[in-house]
Design a protein around this nucleic acid. Structure first.
Length: 423
RNA sequence: GUGGGCGUAGCUCAGUUUGGUUAGAGCCCUGGAUUGUGGCUCCAGAGGUCGGGGGUUCAAAUCCCCUCGCUCACCCCA
């Protein structure tokens, strides 16, 4: 076997590439309308950024990062997510001084060293947005609406919004204590995994799929019942704005996200029929992150969305992708003697702004016509003795089969007539 | 990291249970029928280390062991 792509990576082949730029353009179009500006950060950062940003005990940091030393033994890591780098860039470039609220978006590859699975890759692409500098619940809602509009414009259907509040530093600590207390005398009833979770992050016990653990958690205290007044009010306002815009959502007090920096609002957008990896976007508020990374206390909110998973949903829902543009004109030479003329004409047509191509081989006319047909050329320009003697080509409309002789100089004019060959 | 399924032509797959001549089909590709004209049809042709290595055997795509890859689920996430 030849060398293959590394595990969990993939080639985007010419047939699929247009899907990607179609999606990327739509993302840029919608987010620009919402007042966001694009930012591009490096593919790797100093490892410490992610340890401090995402959290030392998270799965991403403990077992999923591509980490390697540079030549001076400084530890680098391929970015596993986009928020920490954006906040780093925000601080490093003093963006807080330019305006009070900064609204950024990014599109790019992320890297996590996990075992690949349906909808899960080691290099995958996300787009995401970050609103830094406001604690207004309107920002939380705007972020969700921006994501929804992108999905809607691309034709995605059957999406569900799941939302929760995970509280702030203060009320979460109180709540976790309460939850631990509740679980402490039930530890022997929990599964092995959940006993570990109890120690590490008791909120995750809610996620366990085992019936026995679920049963115990039914009577557990809920975070939403234990929010401090500020968090409770914030959550109420977020919900009422969503109601106001008639955006349907599903409240899930058990939704806990895997990154430590989330506070208050946490949400996911879930696609149906995607298998186990069904979250196409996830995000929330991170009011402590900027400070964690060395800035002044500054609130923020955002989300990250998986582009591969979007494409999976779109393919599954049989969305009509825009057709890629075909070549305008394919030059066909009757014999090898017309090669030079054909080559010169080719470049001339290209210089006029039309797309053109030809087959460089000396294959038969029939074979060249087949190629023209296969690549979907709108017209062929046939060059032979007969045409050359009059400084003309035979222009053939490949759809209608109509053809006529046209002066070399008038090919461009002929094609640009609009309806094309009307002969 | 744990567990299941699968690797045969560029693609989709048959053949593996029960080892037995030159490993098949459809699509795709190339050429011809049509000597200056594509798609449809017909004809012909090309294309394979049967994922890789080792073992058993007179004989292995087929049985055994190892390995690599893909895939699904768990964990977690986009």
């Amino acid at each position: 076997m030849f060398i293959q792509v590394p595990k969990g990576t993939q080639d985007i082949l010419p047939d699929d590439a247009p899907k990607w730029y179609y999606i990327e353009n739509k993302i840029r179009e919608v987010l620009t309308k919402y007042g966001y500006q694009e930012i591009r950060t490096p593919a790797f950062e100093y490892t410490e950024l992610f340890i401090r940003g995402i959290g030392e005990s998270t799965d991403i940091v403990t077992k999923e990062m591509f980490t390697f030393p540079d030549r001076k033994e400084r530890s680098l890591t391929l970015r596993p997510e986009g928020t920490a780098p954006v906040v780093r860039a925000y601080l490093e470039n003093n963006m807080d001084r330019a305006s009070k609220v900064v609204k950024l978006f990014y599109i790019g590859s992320m890297f996590r060293c996990e075992k690949p699975q349906g909808g899960r890759f080691r290099q995958f692409n996300q787009f995401g947005i970050e609103v830094i500098g406001t604690k207004s619940p309107e920002a939380d809602v705007e972020v969700i609406m921006a994501a929804l509009e992108i999905y809607e414009k691309l034709g995605l259907k059957n999406l569900e919004i799941v939302i929760n509040s995970v509280g702030c530093k203060k009320c979460r600590v109180d709540y976790i204590q309460k939850l631990k207390k509740f679980l402490s005398n039930k530890k022997d009833l929990l599964c092995l995994e959940c006993v570990k979770r109890y120690e590490k992050n008791p909120l995750r016990v809610f996620d366990c799929k085992k019936d026995s653990c679920q049963k115990i958690m039914e009577t557990a205290p809920m975070i939403t019942e234990n929010l401090c007044p500020e968090c409770k009010l914030h959550f109420e306002e977020v919900k009422s704005h969503l109601d106001d815009f008639k955006i349907k959502y599903h409240l899930d007090p058990k939704l806990v996200r895997g990154l430590d920096y989330y506070t208050k609002t946490a949400f996911e957008i879930v696609g149906k029929g995607l298998g186990a990896q069904n979250a196409i976007a996830g995000g929330g508020r991170y009011d402590d992150l900027v400070e964690e990374l060395g800035g002044k206390p500054t609130p923020g909110v955002g989300f990250a969305a998986g582009i591969e998973r979007m494409i999976m949903v779109m393919n599954q829902q049989k969305i009509n992708w825009p057709k890629p543009k075909c070549i305008d004109i394919f030059i066909v030479k009757v014999s090898a003697e017309n090669k030079d003329t054909a080559f010169r004409l080719l470049q001339k047509i290209r210089n006029s702004g039309l797309s053109a191509d030809l087959d460089y081989s000396n294959d038969s006319l029939k074979s060249q016509m087949r190629i023209a047909n296969k690549i979907g050329a709108r017209y062929t320009a046939i060059i032979g003795e007969e045409e050359l003697s009059k400084d003309m080509v035979t222009l053939r409309n490949m759809q209608t089969k109509e053809q006529k002789k046209v002066k070399l100089d008038e090919i461009e004019k002929e094609l640009k007539k609009g309806s094309g060959l009307n002969i």
